[in-house]
């Protein structure tokens, strides 16, 4: 079967983001960009499926600016066969991305789409579920294990307090959680091969998708700074404050 893996270009995991002084967003100029870490896990899972002979072809897709080609190259270096860039410079919300991906699915006909469970920039954790809805496919979200069983996938999901296993009919959507696998490092020969693999570029208009955002960002601010510390009189008071004031336990 063919597997589609969407990958997003995001501010690198190790960068400590700074809110812009005018409150319009976070500073992204001259900041290191990388593939969303959950998407790397998704790519790795697809590559393992290919190595097991379950997947035949892996197509990586990125919706974003032209520079997102770099993230596609990373996916290709990890083992994806070809890339598609849906080029768009403005904001793309998960709903818009899901619509773009639906159009790509329509053209490519994959039996499985594996996405990261969440992008570490907008933290929406929504694109996979939305794509599943638009396609009318089943979803195995927050997956920590995926196995093919006949014409279905057995997906172990990370849920609050434990694990849950569902069987999802193919074609299906899977979103990758942290423990699904540990992504490989691209080898030098594969990085070189990746430069020669094809990347096709399309525009949202070519796919007939309206990507106008539904949300307008009124402001972005830093979370409240730490208050001046205080002494508490007893263990009871401490626990009460941690529960109800700081809300950390």
């Amino acid at each position: 079967m063919k597997v589609l893996v969407p990958v997003k270009r995001v501010v690198d995991y190790n960068v400590k983001v700074r809110v812009k002084a005018d409150g319009s967003g976070v500073e992204t100029a001259n900041v290191k960009m990388s593939m969303n870490p959950f998407d790397e896990i998704a790519v790795e899972e697809a590559v393992r499926l290919k190595e097991k002979g379950v997947a035949e072809e892996i197509v990586a897709v990125s919706c974003g600016p032209n520079a997102a080609q770099e993230q596609l190259r990373t996916a290709l270096a990890m083992g994806a066969d070809r890339g598609i860039l849906v080029e768009h410079d403005g904001v793309l919300e998960p709903l818009a991305v899901a619509k773009l991906l639906k159009a790509i699915v329509g053209r490519e006909g994959p039996a499985l789409v594996i996405l990261g469970k969440q992008a570490i920039d907008d933290d929406m954790s929504a694109t996979g579920q939305m794509l599943a809805a638009l396609l009318g496919w089943g979803q195995g979200t927050f997956a920590s294990r995926v196995e093919k069983e006949g014409d279905a996938l057995r997906v172990t999901r990370e849920v609050d307090g434990g694990l849950e296993t569902v069987s999802v009919k193919l074609p299906a959507i899977v979103t990758a959680d942290l423990r699904l696998n540990e992504p490989r490092y691209a080898s030098l020969p594969n990085i070189m091969k990746a430069r020669k693999k094809p990347i096709e570029t399309v525009k949202p208009a070519d796919l007939g998708v309206d990507v106008t955002p539904r949300l307008s960002v009124l402001k972005v601010e830093e979370p409240a700074k730490r208050q001046a510390g205080k002494k508490v009189g007893s263990v009871q008071e401490l626990v009460e404050k941690l529960r109800n004031e700081a809300k950390v336990i």
């Binding site: 770099e70 190259r73 990373t74 270096a77 490092y185 691209a186 080898s187």
Partner: peptide, 14 residues
């Protein structure tokens, strides 16, 4: 070049 950056990134990870 983007290729140089990819090399640096990959080596850095190892």
């Amino acid at each position: 070049t983007p290729q140089h950056e990819a090399l640096q990134e990959a080596i850095g990870r190892i």
